[in-house]
Amino acid sequence: MRWGYTLMTEQAGPAQLVRDAAAAEQAGFDFEVISDHYSPWLDSQGHSPYAWSVLGAVTQRTERVGLMTYVTCPLIRYHPAVVAQKAATVQLLSDNRFTLGLGSGENLNEHITAAGWPPANIRHEMLDEAVQIISGLFDGGYLNHSGSHYRVDSAKLWDLPEVRVPIAVAVSGAQSVARFALAADAMIAVEPEPGLCESWDASRGNHSPTRKIGQLPVCWDQDRDAAVARAHEQFRWFGGGWKVNAELPGPAGFAGATQFVTPEDVAASIPCGPEVEPILKSVREFVDAGFTDVALVQIGGGHQEEFLGFAASTLLPALRELG
């Protein structure tokens, strides 16, 4: 098992995220993932810097940890050929520590270019085609592509890393697993769904096993009541599930959709407070489901230093024993 730390752009500015990345490496985390958003989920989170600029700075402030987008949507806001260029550049800057995490995105971030928000089946088609384009550019040489959703005219990555950028794709069920298990180098999922990892491995057949990377929000604080209140204020959107979260267009929509969610509802699904055991209990679900990596999200942009101290002294040793 590998244990990760999340640079959550929705809850901190760029300079703090870079400092947190360096501190998380010092604390002993194995890898770090970064969200790639144009908007926060809720106004109370209050931030959303450009993830790729932050990543460039993080490559120069860290030396050991793996880096990864969790996740980038290469459908509307970004053209897949540009995503390939960004990923290759970060791989070079990080000395081959980068993994490109991709997903079909959310209306929250993609509607801003006014190109419309397609239904889920079309988004999966677009993601499939985008992965083909990105992989083709990673192969080297010139790429021409004329598909159902994208065109690429004589594109080439002029600065291509010696180590090919691994591609991880977010999946949620049998349809997306079947579509991407052979096209990707790793699996991403935010819920420890039973059988998801097993079906991913089965779909890959005789191909080599891959990383299966999950994510878990926590709200650590010496005061449990304060932790529950903070988790409710900033993370109550999480309980809607991705089928809902992918469709709402902005923070006002998430505020309205979660107006009747109580602090107790949030605390029932997110470990809150000073104890390590509730976190381990939630992590065990990912371990038992077959995940190889879990990235933790500490809720609250101003509460990272204390959490990282707790992680170094208590949480990471317990996780390594569990793993």
Rank of each mutant, 00 (worst) to 15 (best):
D293L: 02
M1L: 11
F138P: 05
D153A: 10
H47I: 01
Q60C: 13
D139H: 13
V261N: 01
F260M: 13
I167A: 03
D153G: 00
C197A: 15
D153F: 01
H111S: 12
T9F: 00
Q234D: 00
P161T: 07
A15V: 11
Q298R: 06
M68K: 04
S53H: 11
D139R: 15
H145F: 15
R2I: 04
P14G: 01
R97Y: 04
A229I: 00
P80L: 09
G13C: 02
E285Y: 08
F286M: 08
D223E: 12
F235E: 08
A181W: 00
D225R: 10
A21Q: 03
A227V: 01
G273E: 01
Q132L: 14
Q215H: 10
P217A: 07
V165T: 12
V177I: 15
T292M: 02
A21M: 03
G141S: 06
A312T: 02
K156C: 12
G240I: 14
L315C: 00
A226G: 02
G103Y: 02
D95M: 06
F286N: 01
E285G: 05
I299D: 05
E125K: 12
N245W: 12
A184I: 08
G105F: 06
P263L: 08
P161F: 10
K281C: 00
G256W: 02
S48K: 06
F238V: 03
D95L: 12
G300D: 00
V65I: 14
H149D: 11
P166L: 07
F310K: 08
M8K: 01
V283Y: 00
R211W: 07
E25Q: 06
H47Y: 13
S208L: 13
L127V: 01
A81R: 02
A155P: 04
I133T: 03
A22F: 07
W242Y: 15
D43G: 08
F29D: 00
K86I: 03
Y150E: 08
P119F: 02
P251F: 04
D225S: 15
T59A: 14
F98H: 05
P274E: 03
A227M: 09
H149K: 08
W237F: 15
A24W: 00
A289H: 05
G195C: 11
P161M: 04
A189C: 13
A87V: 08
V169P: 07
Q85F: 04
A170T: 11
S53F: 01
P192D: 06
G302Q: 11
E125R: 15
W41L: 01
F254D: 11
D20I: 05
G101I: 09
D265V: 05
S208G: 12
G205Y: 11
W52R: 03
E233D: 14
A226V: 09
G66Q: 06
P278M: 06
D293C: 07
W242S: 14
E162R: 15
A227H: 07
F291S: 03
F180Q: 10
V131L: 01
L196A: 10
D223Y: 09
D128G: 15
